[in-house]
Design a protein around this nucleic acid. Structure first.
Lengths: 144, 144
DNA sequence: TTGCGTGCAAACGCTTTGCATATTA
DNA sequence: TAATATGCAAAGCGTTTGCACGCAA
């Protein structure tokens, strides 16, 4: 998995998308480019279904299976993050900077929280054979 | 929702389970008592399916629908927490003390992390109409 | 021409729901 | 006896998979 996180300059041009895919060792097929272009218009949280709709409005047709395959691949390669907060579906996060989330349990709104401002301290020492993959902070808020 | 979190003394006796349910404004039917007794044997993370199996081994029969209804109710009332980390299924957490989680992405193991040792600082000021429901820290680790 | 990627439809698995029956207050 | 809870089976829905076809190296 690519662990670099140079800040991206949203929205990404087609060429930048291609470079990004290659950088993450993903061969840039037409469908993958279209999906990534849609994702990296801006930092956002999208479900597979919304990606499918979004891509098929602007570009050529991409099948549901390809969206799922592609998002699985993008996640595996570290290009996007899965956000598992909503019980209903998985969200894919195109914000590649280090950040946390604020989730409104009443509206379902998912907002980014810049990790520069958040500090997690006092973690225990883990077994030496364990690598920390990520540290996520999720603040759940209610507007009721 | 009941927000008290007196430390529980695991495992809970049948009487303590009944009191706990009443404290959370849940009327203690036979099935709910059996499910809660199974959950509160110890702090643990269980899927609906494992609850179903566990309850039906030791006690009377409880249906799948009742397990789902009951866990939905327990969650709504604040008796247990849903932990949404694994894409496959929801885990219900019977540890009622304030804590975070360490999730091993390779083995699927989910471990508690006492919140006494973790400090989250630098949260932004939220809109005044928003209440913070919870602050969760999830450390993902890999053993590969 | 060999392997990888895509698309369709069917299958899958967790969860929810409709409705009849049972239990509780 | 009215309201709530339970159980069964079927339906729902996001996601995955099998397989044939297409495309690229």
């Amino acid at each position: 998995m690519n662990t670099e996180h140079k800040p991206l300059d949203y929205p990404l041009s087609r060429d930048e998308v291609v470079q990004l895919l290659q950088q993450y060792k993903i061969s840039p097929t037409r469908q993958r480019i279209e999906i990534a272009s849609y994702l990296f218009q801006r930092p956002q949280h999208l479900s597979a279904d919304r990606i499918l709709d979004g891509v098929n409005v602007v570009g050529h047709r991409v099948s549901r299976a390809t969206v799922y395959n592609t998002m699985g691949l993008f996640t595996e390669k570290g290009l996007v993050r899965e956000v598992l907060i909503d019980r209903e579906r998985v969200f894919y996060d195109s914000n590649n900077s280090h950040h946390h989330h604020i989730y409104n349990v009443d509206t379902g709104e998912l907002r980014d929280l810049d990790s520069v401002h958040v500090d997690v301290q006092g973690l225990p020492t883990l077994e030496p054979d364990l690598d920390v993959v990520s540290t996520e902070v999720i603040i759940k808020v209610s507007s009721r």
